[in-house]
Design a protein around this nucleic acid. Sequence first.
DNA 1: TATGAATGAGTCTTCATTCAT
DNA 2: TATGAATGAAGACTCATTCAT
Lengths: 196, 196, 196, 196
Amino acid sequence: MQKKKSGDSAVALRRREQVLVAAAECVRREGFHRTSMSQISAAAGMSSGHIHHFFGGKEGIIEGVVAREHSDLGEFIDEVRAASGETDAVTAFTDLVPKCAERYMNSDHAALATEILAEASRNENVASLIQRNDDSVSEAFQTLFGGPSPMVRAQCDLIAAIFEGLSARSIRNPSSREFIDIQMLQRVVASILTEK
Amino acid sequence: MQKKKSGDSAVALRRREQVLVAAAECVRREGFHRTSMSQISAAAGMSSGHIHHFFGGKEGIIEGVVAREHSDLGEFIDEVRAASGETDAVTAFTDLVPKCAERYMNSDHAALATEILAEASRNENVASLIQRNDDSVSEAFQTLFGGPSPMVRAQCDLIAAIFEGLSARSIRNPSSREFIDIQMLQRVVASILTEK
Amino acid sequence: MQKKKSGDSAVALRRREQVLVAAAECVRREGFHRTSMSQISAAAGMSSGHIHHFFGGKEGIIEGVVAREHSDLGEFIDEVRAASGETDAVTAFTDLVPKCAERYMNSDHAALATEILAEASRNENVASLIQRNDDSVSEAFQTLFGGPSPMVRAQCDLIAAIFEGLSARSIRNPSSREFIDIQMLQRVVASILTEK
Amino acid sequence: MQKKKSGDSAVALRRREQVLVAAAECVRREGFHRTSMSQISAAAGMSSGHIHHFFGGKEGIIEGVVAREHSDLGEFIDEVRAASGETDAVTAFTDLVPKCAERYMNSDHAALATEILAEASRNENVASLIQRNDDSVSEAFQTLFGGPSPMVRAQCDLIAAIFEGLSARSIRNPSSREFIDIQMLQRVVASILTEK
DNA sequence: TATGAATGAGTCTTCATTCAT
DNA sequence: TATGAATGAAGACTCATTCAT
């Protein structure tokens, strides 16, 4: 009952992952609509026909790439939560600001995240996928900072805007990476989290 | 500013504008690579062949749309500058934060701006176009706030990140539009501009 | 107002005809679904892209081929009608039975007609196309033989069945072409038309 | 009638039948070339790989469906032969005309029969399959009516044309089903069989 | 015997671009 | 200056067939 039968067997899941990693890399470099299925199949070392069976077409791959991209934010939340045990959450988060900023200003991350946002503007499925994901991330952070409430939500949204804005800045003007002042950023984040 | 190759006349410029407005609207809805030349030619009321002569291909239209999109930031700078005559620049700018935030959270603006950023990630011409544009905007703002200097540049970049982040947030999670606290945002902007 | 502008200009109509002739020949040999657009474009001496513009896809070509195939039945009706002036309609038609039988037993005609019928079994558009056409042909014949009425319709339908059956027979068993007795067929047709 | 290559056992034959029934139903609805092996395998409840082993590819299934379709004509002949014992063959057959007409005008039968004819126009194997089958049916009928002879063959072919034509009519113009006059048809059949 | 994962050639279709008018 | 007919390369997707298990 465990060796045969596939569709979601271990090997099938590994295949899925293999394709999504390859596809994400293609999308980073070319965007969703300039990445062809044959590019993905070449990068994944799998025939285009089989990729279709796995993902049900290009739309399925797009959604797979989008879903996969945001799974690592969960790890970041865990990290903050773990550090919050030793000090207070605000300090824990503020200490992680440099690392977080670096991540958002990384050009690979920024390119893929921006491509996903652009796609969400016209693809309903992608839009609801990233919104649902953001809702759960938002709730986790709100809980961390004193439980869900409009006030905390406003604080989290503003901080999220700053970080997402770092990605936008690093694409629009790569030289801004050298000018952004991380300590200034930390002070701003801290001041937002300690409002009221 | 020398002679353009095909038609520098007023009517030719009006034609250009007409096409770019139509093209921008298409791009907003579909993105660069899902917008076909025939869609643009239909929207602009001009034959596809003629559009090619005007813009030298799709690449030319993309660049035209990108260049045009940022021309209105100049007006915003003028507005701040004008208001700065009466009070100080920081107050003038802070007063304009609500209006500016609204603009960046507008879904049409956000969609097109994000599409342009995504395109810049893989199109060298677009990348340098928006970087040059950002450089000149940045310099204008730095001048307004006592710069140019690395310190003022850092302040401007951080504020720019926040506003661009508002666009990202409004796409990723449209519900954040209702939660973002404009007064909190004003306080943050003011605190950044009055650092040191 | 007559030289430029196309879409249905003389040259465009000639192009349409050119494609449909080529397509009909392909369909005769291979059937609708084994005939590829590239085969048609090769046979018509026109690019596949342009054929799409003309016909809006393969479906459009199928419908064009179907519509075109039945246009020659009109000529046959005219012939019967003309001959009916000299003698009575029954004699006129009976005299044309050999020619008509030959036509229906021609393997090219039989192959295409059968392919169209097969397509009509699963393609709503084709079904209504050939039904409408048959309705108008049927009405013309009924008028010829004493005006539309259930009785005359029954006579016409039975005769039509015989002729269409000749096509089926000549495909199912080509040797039947040599055995079918045209004079027997004439007597049968005459007896049907003189019933009651 | 020697040993088949893969499984001549009862269970294997039942499997074959199961697949052919499912395939025939698919073909009725979609035609040979729009019916995919995976549709057949789904309808038959058997894997596509196994179906290949049984039938040696799609071509084998097509031939299987074609061969199977005409097996029921044998039963009809038996029926006529049985009834011929009581009365003469002409009366026996004439009495069965309504039942036979109904069968040929049934849309399921007509669709599959027409699909097979269309396929025969371009598939040599199918063509010779249905011709051989028709030859044996024809001989049986000729024998029944005093046969075999060119004259009786002509009579049988003409009657066969009428019935096959009913299928064609019912596809081309379904409304003809209501107008065809069965008694008129019976008179015509009787008159053909009593010629000379 | 039986499965279905995997392949890759082939299909329809789209679209930027060219060119005769 | 302006049109749109025409091209052909490239795209997503389908499907008969193969093969390891």
